[in-house]
Design a protein around this nucleic acid. Structure first.
Length: 371
DNA sequence: AAACCGGGGGT
DNA sequence: ACCCCAGGTTT
């Protein structure tokens, strides 16, 4: 039995039943592949159903607004995936007659589709003989063949690509790729792999060397950035007297691009209350404020991400309609219902949710704070 | 090549 | 506390 015969036999018996399995609808397979980038299947599967229900085909996605697309993506993270999908959907409708190009070489030119996704789509949907290497595949191959090369360097990746290409059967390329991934996530797991039940235990070089945990070889060490976000909840009354507050849309190439948040003062360290209200940002906002009422300033809340540790706190403020006019130039006024429909990062969702109580504080001018 | 981009779950 | 997840883009 060849490697692929052994693997495909295992796959025929043990493969998982996933919603997009067996589909040859390029759109749905594409949606599943993008959602599953750096995302566990258990977490992504609900998003997949919601996404294809909200946007049943490429035209529905192309005609939607970016806000709508990001809203469906809310809570999943790596939001550039959603922005790129939206752009690619519009590109395919505008320039490709609404159909995906049918080769990995052309697919990889689309925004948000890299080497892995192009290969996965082409092999699954168009039966192209090209290996799709994700984290699972790197791990499986690295262990069975004791590959010494690092998986996060270009030469190392090339080695794995060539190895996978040699193992690939002439038929069923898409199932071969998915079989490697299923096998990696179900048997050849990152920790506590099921080597005793493994179909490759007689040929696995890492197992023979009792060094399964040494593979795959990685070089990259991640660095975590510390950030301090001071969010302001400026509460005021709207045109009809309803409770409203100010928000803004994040721009620039930073985290949560094009998503909504509260007015933000970012600092390089934790500020005291006094320092917040003597900060140039605040003084420029309210050159001569009189009516601002301080509510509560929450203790810093830690939002732990892969590459950042965000220390966020919320400053509750009640402002007069006069002061609100000053803010309208820089921020957008919304009520709770309006804000609910806008895409926002998890952190903002949490902050606003626990900020339901109205501020009952004192005027800044009574606080003995130098402003 | 290295940095950047979320959030969650497993151990 | 640390690792990893059906990776990709930007610098």
């Amino acid at each position: 039995m060849t490697f692929s015969d052994t693997l495909l036999k295992w796959y025929d018996e043990h493969r998982r039943n996933l919603p997009w399995r067996g589909l040859h609808d390029a759109y749905r397979v594409w949606v599943s592949e993008i959602i599953l980038q750096q995302t566990r299947i258990d977490q992504g599967i609900g998003y997949y159903h919601r996404f294809v229900e909200t946007f049943p085909d490429i035209y529905a996605l192309a005609t939607a607004s970016e806000d709508e697309v990001l809203r469906v993506w809310q809570g999943l993270g790596y939001y550039s995936r959603a922005r790129n999908m939206h752009e690619t959907a519009r590109n395919i409708v505008a320039n490709h007659g609404g159909s995906f190009p049918q080769s990995s070489a052309k697919l990889i030119k689309l925004k948000g589709i890299g080497e892995y996704t192009a290969a996965a789509l082409a092999s699954i949907v168009f039966n192209e003989n090209v290996p799709a290497l994700d984290g699972n595949v790197y791990r499986v191959l690295a262990r069975i063949f004791a590959v010494p090369h690092s998986i996060d360097t270009s030469p190392g990746k090339k080695t794995f690509r060539e190895l996978a290409m040699q193992l690939m059967p002439d038929k069923r390329p898409g199932e071969f790729n998915q079989a490697l991934m299923d096998f990696g996530s179900m048997v050849c797991k990152p920790v506590n792999p099921l080597c005793n039940d493994c179909i490759f235990q007689d040929q696995c070089l890492a197992l023979q060397k009792q060094s399964v945990d040494k593979y795959p070889v990685r070089n990259i060490k991640r660095k975590v950035r510390e950030r301090y976000f001071n969010y302001f909840l400026f509460q005021t009354n709207g045109p009809a007297g309803e409770p409203c507050f100010f928000i803004q849309k994040r721009t620039g190439n930073d985290i949560w691009k094009n998503m909504y948040e509260l007015p933000l003062l970012e600092t390089s360290s934790q500020l005291s209350e006094e320092e917040i209200f003597s900060n140039p940002w605040w003084k420029a906002l309210f050159p001569a404020e009189k009516d601002v009422l301080i509510g509560k300033i929450t203790p810093p809340m830690l939002h732990q991400l892969t590459h950042q540790r965000i220390h966020a706190r919320l400053i509750h403020l009640k402002i007069s309609s006069g002061d609100a006019k000053i803010l309208r130039n820089r921020f957008r006024l919304t009520d709770n219902e309006g804000f609910n429909e806008l895409p926002k990062p998890r952190l903002i969702e949490m902050l606003v949710m626990q900020a339901d109580e109205m501020p009952t504080g004192t005027k800044i001018s009574d606080c003995n704070i130098q402003t």
